[in-house]
């Protein structure tokens, strides 16, 4: 019984982890059809923000929950203004430009902080006991934050004026523009928000995985597969993609080992995209956000 609870908890955590690293990418991809290959590096920058801030004596919660999204969000806005906005509608060019950006960011961070940083931040919060088993309390916290983040993004899109304008721009930019909406401003804010969510995710994961200039590479493939499998809807797509792929990965990792777990995740994604080329939300939950 304890084992079942412990494994289920790990499963939920695996899913939340996937959702957390993918949400920022999904916002940018879903709203703007921009594929941000520097997504992994935005996560990495969130992590470094936390490391630098805590080393400077900032409270770790402030660093993770406020500074990381703020800093990376600002970086996102700058990147959008300098780079992305010249390339809207040119998907291949955006791919190349953001890939270049990712290499640039890795190089910059390496030259500032060195190849490896001494990240001596431990996951805060204690241990939760499940009978004979134990898990990190911080992982439970991350699951909670992921849920809260989804609710917050849902509320922003559904209930605020900004969300309404953003959804309108997403559905029909010409019409929104004709109605007096500044679409370039909407794109800038959306990209900034997507980057901020990514920075938050990177900051929250810093104590769990450690921070290296190249840590982004370990996230990027999974985030992409999740977003593409999920399809166009931002929240429903990311959530369904994470549940399916994270679930399969977790179950297979526990039953066999992590190698087969990763293979199972990829096989599931390939089969899924063969059957549903537009992702899960291309077939189901079409009207959802």
């Amino acid at each position: 019984m304890d084992l079942v609870v412990a494994v289920l908890f790990q499963l939920v955590y695996g899913i939340a982890n996937l959702a957390l690293i993918s949400l920022g990418l999904a916002i940018i991809f879903g709203m703007m059809r921009v594929i941000n290959l520097a997504h992994g590096e935005f996560l990495m920058l969130g992590g470094y923000t936390v490391v630098v801030a805590t080393n400077a004596g900032v409270n770790i919660w402030v660093a993770m929950l406020i500074l990381a999204p703020l800093v990376v969000g600002i970086i996102g806005v700058i990147v959008e203004r300098l780079l992305i906005r010249w390339l809207y509608g040119r998907m291949v060019d955006t791919l190349l430009a953001t890939w270049g950006l990712s290499l640039l960011l890795i190089g910059l961070v390496t030259s500032i902080f060195g190849a490896s940083t001494a990240t001596t931040i431990s996951p805060p919060l204690g241990i939760i006991r499940i009978g004979d088993y134990s898990a990190s309390g911080y992982e439970l916290f991350l699951v909670g934050v992921t849920i809260a983040l989804f609710i917050a993004v849902y509320a922003t899109l559904k209930l605020t004026k900004l969300g309404l304008v953003a959804r309108g721009t997403m559905q029909n930019p010409e019409m929104s523009s004709a109605l007096g909406v500044s679409t370039t401003r909407v794109y800038m804010i959306t990209f900034g928000l997507g980057a901020a969510v990514t920075g938050l995710a990177g900051g929250l994961l810093a104590p769990v995985t450690g921070v290296l200039p190249t840590i982004g590479a370990t996230y990027i493939a999974k985030a992409f597969i999740t977003v593409i499998s999920g399809g166009a809807s931002i929240l429903a797509g990311t959530a369904s993609g994470s549940v399916l792929l994270g679930g399969i990965n977790g179950i297979f990792s526990f039953l066999t080992g992590p190698t087969i777990g990763e293979v199972a995740l990829l096989v599931a994604a390939i089969l899924l995209l063969r059957l549903m080329p537009r992702g899960i939300t291309g077939r189901f939950f079409r009207k959802s956000l």
């Binding site: 494994v7 790990q10 955590y13 977790g250 990792s253 080992g257 777990g261």
Partner: peptide
């Protein structure tokens, strides 16, 4: 004995197995 590809970052399932 368990083997991990070099880019694995989530070791949760393995930690459960070790506890078992």
């Amino acid at each position: 004995v368990e083997f991990f590809p070099l880019d694995v970052t989530n070791f949760g399932p393995t930690i459960n197995k070790i506890q078992t």
